[in-house]
Amino acid sequence: MPGLAILGAGIFAKEAHLPAIHALGGDAPPLLAVYSRSEKTAKDCAQHATSLGITPAPAIYHDGDESSNLDALFARADVTSVIVALPITLQPAIILKALAAGKHVLSEKPVAPDVASGIELIKIYQEKYKHNLVWRVAENYEAESGFRAAGELIKADRIGKVTFFKATVTNHIEVTNQYYKTPWRTVPEYQGGFLLDGGVHTIGALRTVLPHPLTHLSAFASLNFEYLKPHDTIHAVVQSDGNFHGIVELSFGAPTKTNPTIDQYVITGTNGWITLNFKRIDNKSVLRLVLHHVVKDGEGKKVKEEEEVMDLPVKGVQAELASFLEKVAGQETMNIGDPLEALRDVAFIEAGLNSNGVLVDLIKLVTEGK
């Protein structure tokens, strides 16, 4: 029977991937193994799996014993798919190692630490493994029903032709933050720090919602808090190939938990607008979508304005995992997780970090790596 393994037993594996596996129930293959560089972390993750009701307990693999290291895990014929949730700089090598071992791969975003290494990684996959193995990138914002619903409403012309947009996401990161305390994030060996690790979510959401790809940007990046090196803030003006433009504000350097700006996405068209923002309602996370549009009569004259509010559950990790497993089984209901699309998210962040006000061609960056 085909089985699943998790490579990386950190916070997100325990708080997101394990609950997603449990929520899928019989629609997910059994979780057969958990790997971490340290035995303690692997044990903690496996114990958390059983506490959620995932049975039997997954086997533990770690680097401290050759009989139970990563090579030993890859040698198991019953482990057919792996979720890779390791530090950003380690992921490309582990993805290739998993593919070489004949495993289907769902790897956490970002697809790679930078555009050049992402291009090379995708090239190797397409040339050597694509014909018989599935590799998808886990960008859960792309899978969120709220962002996907907004994209469908825009395609259905509910706000007319898109004219401009704005995405504002600000975060206050303290040194006590559980993600900051992760050693590989405290002293990041990759560009952008939290801007790369978390900023790709915002760009993934925009490419899911907007009807045309983003093609150019001019941006400035800065560091406002020394412990968030190398950068914590990007402000960008962006152009699309659909002849509309917008503003993207990304910061992990807000000074307080309470921010003067509400995190949200606003897409404006010739006939209305859509807003999206995350909320907690009845102790559950939802993505609130507000559609405000003009109603016209048969002669095209404005009659009134209407507003619809939808609170859609936040289940992106579960949805991305389900989509990956469907693809492995030879089916696909949601076309998500394409590594090339995930590379566009990395390209946006890389361009934003390096632009310094100069216009950057995002399409050229993705195809040429410069």
Rank of each mutant, 00 (worst) to 15 (best):
K97Q: 12
E139W: 05
V111A: 12
L106S: 04
G53W: 01
N354C: 03
V294F: 04
T89G: 13
E326K: 09
I54F: 00
V317T: 15
V82R: 03
H212Y: 07
Q91V: 15
E189T: 14
Y61V: 05
P339I: 08
N335W: 12
F278V: 13
Y190N: 03
P211N: 01
G8W: 11
A5H: 04
Q91P: 09
L121H: 06
Q331C: 08
L153R: 09
V294H: 13
G316S: 04
L18I: 01
V360Q: 13
T256V: 10
S81M: 10
V209I: 07
D71P: 10
G269P: 06
H22Y: 14
G269N: 01
G199D: 02
E350L: 05
T80G: 03
L228N: 04
L121M: 14
V209C: 01
L210W: 02
I21Y: 02
G352T: 03
T233P: 00
I336L: 00
T261D: 15
L18G: 00
A116C: 12
D65P: 01
I274C: 03
D263S: 06
D63Y: 08
F12T: 13
G146D: 00
R185V: 15
G160E: 01
Q91S: 11
E249T: 06
L4F: 08
A93Q: 09
D78M: 02
S81N: 08
V134N: 04
G3I: 09
V84H: 05
Q264H: 14
P183C: 10
H293Q: 14
L217W: 05
I349K: 09
N354W: 01
R288T: 14
E39I: 01
G151D: 01
T208W: 02
Q318S: 12
V105F: 03
I349F: 00
T256H: 14
K155V: 06
A351T: 01
D27R: 11
V358L: 06
I83D: 02
F225L: 15
W273I: 15
A254G: 08
T270C: 01
S117F: 12
N132Y: 13
A319R: 15
V286R: 09
K166A: 15
E142N: 09
S68Q: 14
Y61F: 10
G146Q: 00
E108C: 08
F165S: 07
I274Y: 05
F348N: 04
L4P: 02
P92A: 01
A85N: 10
G199P: 03
H216S: 08
G300A: 03
Y125H: 11
A57I: 03
V328H: 03
S285N: 12
K123W: 14
G352N: 00
I154F: 05
N177W: 06
K315W: 13
S67A: 13
H245M: 13
F74T: 09
L287S: 08
Y179H: 12
T163S: 11
T163H: 04
V115K: 06
H104F: 09
A85V: 14
G298L: 12
K130Y: 12
T256D: 10
H172E: 11
P188K: 04
H172W: 12
G300T: 05
Y129I: 01
V303A: 11
A100R: 07
V286D: 10
R288N: 14
V134Q: 10
